[in-house]
Amino acid sequence: MTPPAPGLVRPATQEDVPAAVRTLAGAFADYPYTRHVVAADGHEERVRRLQELFLTRIAMPYGRVWVGGEGRAVAVWTTPEKDPTPGFAEVGPLIAELAGDRAAAYEAAEAAVEPHRPQEPVWMLGAVAVDPEAQGQGLGAAVIRPGLAAADLAGQACYLETATGRNVRLYERLGFRTTVELPGVDGGPRVWCMRREPGAGA
């Protein structure tokens, strides 16, 4: 497999938002965790709006976002460079509204994971998505690597959470290691918390 040319991956701009939201919404519509914590009624539109909120109100103003393949691959980070607390406070009520009748499940899932999240500043990989037609080209790993390199440069660890075993294998190849594997809460999916120390490979 030939890796994508480096020029395909770059920091996202406002012009990339529509394509990035489409990619993220498509990837997370049937994601096990999202299915558990977002209402089934109008599910795809709810997921699209949640991804748009996180991208435009949290990640772009307070974190870092890289796109590849003209928005067909997206990696969304929050970082220690800016405190995203104001953004999360702003969108919190909107997230609860979009979760709909699964709001209690969302709160329970968050409560189960929260004790296992790092207490020190880390780069958190909040979302990664690749359009199905662009999969198998190495874009997923390629769009993640700039964030890993930036975290390495800052001497800071990276952290993520995933609800699929297939993703675990991808992240292990990038230097992440599972810190805890949590059983599903109230019928929800299993969640892997993963951490990557600075310079761990990728």
Results as ranks from 00 to 15, higher is better:
residue 1 M to L: 12
residue 3 P to L: 01
residue 6 P to Q: 11
residue 6 P to E: 09
residue 7 G to Y: 15
residue 9 V to S: 01
residue 13 T to L: 05
residue 15 E to W: 09
residue 15 E to F: 11
residue 16 D to W: 13
residue 17 V to H: 12
residue 17 V to F: 06
residue 17 V to N: 14
residue 18 P to Y: 10
residue 18 P to W: 13
residue 21 V to L: 12
residue 21 V to Q: 10
residue 22 R to W: 00
residue 23 T to L: 12
residue 24 L to N: 01
residue 26 G to N: 11
residue 26 G to E: 08
residue 26 G to W: 00
residue 28 F to V: 11
residue 28 F to H: 05
residue 30 D to N: 10
residue 34 T to S: 15
residue 34 T to M: 15
residue 35 R to P: 01
residue 35 R to A: 02
residue 35 R to E: 03
residue 36 H to Q: 03
residue 37 V to E: 09
residue 38 V to T: 11
residue 38 V to E: 03
residue 39 A to W: 13
residue 40 A to P: 11
residue 41 D to S: 09
residue 43 H to C: 02
residue 44 E to W: 09
residue 45 E to G: 03
residue 46 R to W: 10
residue 53 L to K: 08
residue 58 I to M: 02
residue 60 M to R: 00
residue 60 M to Q: 10
residue 62 Y to K: 07
residue 65 V to R: 02
residue 66 W to M: 07
residue 67 V to F: 00
residue 70 E to Q: 14
residue 72 R to L: 14
residue 74 V to E: 10
residue 74 V to R: 00
residue 75 A to H: 02
residue 75 A to N: 04
residue 76 V to M: 15
residue 77 W to Y: 05
residue 78 T to S: 05
residue 78 T to R: 01
residue 80 P to R: 03
residue 80 P to Y: 05
residue 82 K to W: 14
residue 83 D to Q: 01
residue 84 P to V: 10
residue 85 T to D: 00
residue 87 G to C: 08
residue 88 F to G: 03
residue 89 A to R: 14
residue 90 E to H: 08
residue 90 E to T: 06
residue 91 V to Y: 06
residue 91 V to F: 02
residue 92 G to C: 04
residue 93 P to W: 09
residue 95 I to S: 05
residue 96 A to K: 04
residue 97 E to L: 11
residue 98 L to S: 09
residue 99 A to H: 08
residue 100 G to I: 06
residue 100 G to L: 08
residue 106 Y to S: 06
residue 109 A to N: 07
residue 111 A to C: 04
residue 113 V to F: 01
residue 113 V to P: 06
residue 114 E to D: 14
residue 116 H to Y: 15
residue 117 R to C: 15
residue 117 R to V: 15
residue 118 P to D: 13
residue 119 Q to C: 06
residue 120 E to A: 09
residue 123 W to T: 08
residue 124 M to F: 14
residue 124 M to S: 14
residue 125 L to S: 08
residue 126 G to Y: 00
residue 127 A to L: 08
residue 128 V to R: 02
residue 131 D to G: 01
residue 133 E to D: 10
residue 133 E to V: 02
residue 133 E to Y: 07
residue 136 G to F: 14
residue 137 Q to V: 02
residue 138 G to C: 00
residue 139 L to P: 03
residue 139 L to H: 06
residue 141 A to M: 08
residue 145 R to Q: 15
residue 145 R to W: 03
residue 146 P to V: 14
residue 146 P to A: 04
residue 146 P to K: 01
residue 147 G to N: 07
residue 149 A to M: 05
residue 149 A to S: 03
residue 152 D to K: 07
residue 152 D to F: 01
residue 152 D to G: 04
residue 153 L to E: 12
residue 156 Q to F: 01
residue 156 Q to S: 10
residue 157 A to R: 12
residue 159 Y to T: 13
residue 159 Y to R: 05
residue 160 L to I: 04
residue 163 A to P: 05
residue 163 A to C: 06
residue 164 T to A: 02
residue 168 V to L: 10
residue 170 L to E: 07
residue 176 F to G: 03
residue 176 F to K: 01
residue 180 V to H: 15
residue 181 E to C: 11
residue 182 L to N: 12
residue 182 L to T: 08
residue 183 P to K: 03
residue 183 P to V: 12
residue 184 G to K: 05
residue 184 G to I: 06
residue 184 G to M: 04
residue 184 G to S: 06
residue 186 D to G: 09
residue 186 D to W: 11
residue 188 G to Q: 04
residue 188 G to V: 05
residue 190 R to E: 07
residue 191 V to L: 15
residue 193 C to L: 14
residue 193 C to I: 03
residue 193 C to D: 08
residue 193 C to T: 13
residue 200 A to L: 09
residue 200 A to C: 12
residue 202 A to W: 04
residue 202 A to H: 10
